[in-house]
């Protein structure tokens, strides 16, 4: 397996060709008539995307979804990092909470939706709660893991110099856990968007997920698919951007590892 260095231009051409082949296959599938007639063709989806990009409803829905996702993600990140650092650095808490955290992590939060809707109603607040409940676990688990790994020399130094707890927290614990925290925070960003859309699909909360079901109920399949695909693109860009940020922020860590 030697890494052949293809020219970036040629690779781009190949990638575009691959996407074209995929779209071609889709068209063929539609043309063959074996698929249900609701499934829109490639041209319809593209004109749907065009229509979506020029409609204010679409942008309003998308920004609502992004804002709720962002709010839930921020809350989850703050709570997750705080609790994670505390739990991870105290052995007793670490062992006591492990089953509870395992349980929470494997809990499909969207199943809890009807309960949350009963308690909070079908609104943005409910959506933020569900999003942050889902985003909390990756951050918490990663932070705990990061806080656990304390190098013996560092721990000794801290003890010998009697570093105050608050300073230790800020200057020792946080930096050493940071690479793990970053991974958790990044993963939960993708989760935030996915869950926000999911919440809107099931509940009546406004946003892009709601628009997708509305379009589908109105038999506008082209628009529904256009929204879905565009949301996927947004999520993809978000993931790529966050990866870049993480790589840049933690460049010291990477160098250290090499």
């Amino acid at each position: 397996m030697k890494e052949t260095t293809t020219a970036p231009g040629w690779l781009l051409v190949q990638r575009v060709a691959a996407i074209a082949i995929l779209l071609g296959l889709w068209s063929l599938l539609i043309a063959s008539g074996t698929m249900p007639s609701m499934l829109p063709g490639v041209i319809q989806i593209f004109s749907g995307i065009g229509e979506a990009l020029t409609s204010s409803i679409f942008w309003a829905a998308l920004s609502r979804t992004l804002l709720t996702a962002l709010a839930g993600w921020a809350i989850a990140s703050i709570i997750g990092v705080l609790f994670g650092l505390i739990i991870g650095s105290i052995k007793f808490l670490d062992r006591s909470t492990s089953i509870l955290i395992d349980f929470g992590r494997s809990f499909p939060v969207l199943a809890l939706m009807p309960v949350v809707i009963m308690l909070l109603g079908s609104n943005a607040r409910m959506e933020i709660v569900v999003v942050s409940l889902s985003c909390l676990w990756p951050v918490l688990v990663q932070t705990i893991y990061g806080a656990r790994r304390q190098e013996a020399a560092v721990a000794d130094t801290v003890a010998v110099f009697k570093i105050p707890a608050l300073l230790r927290f800020r200057r020792v614990l946080l930096p050493s856990a940071l690479p793990f925290v970053a991974t958790g925070v990044r993963i939960s960003a993708s989760i935030a968007l996915l869950v926000a859309v999911g919440v809107e699909v099931i509940s009546q909360a406004p946003g892009i997920g709601r628009q997708i079901t509305l379009m589908q109920q109105a038999q506008r399949w082209d628009l529904a698919f256009a929204y879905l695909i565009f949301t996927g693109l947004v999520g993809w860009c978000l993931a790529v951007a966050l990866q870049q940020v993480e790589n840049r922020l933690l460049i010291w860590k990477r160098q250290e590892n090499d």
């Binding site: 609701m38 996915l194 859309v197 997708i212 879905l228 996927g232 993809w236 978000l238």
Partner: peptide
């Protein structure tokens, strides 16, 4: 990576609606 980013829950109304 694009397919991975498509919101799974939003697929539900599409796939069930069509199939």
């Amino acid at each position: 990576h694009f397919f991975r980013s498509v919101p799974q829950a939003a697929l539900v109304p599409m796939i069930i609606g069509v199939f």
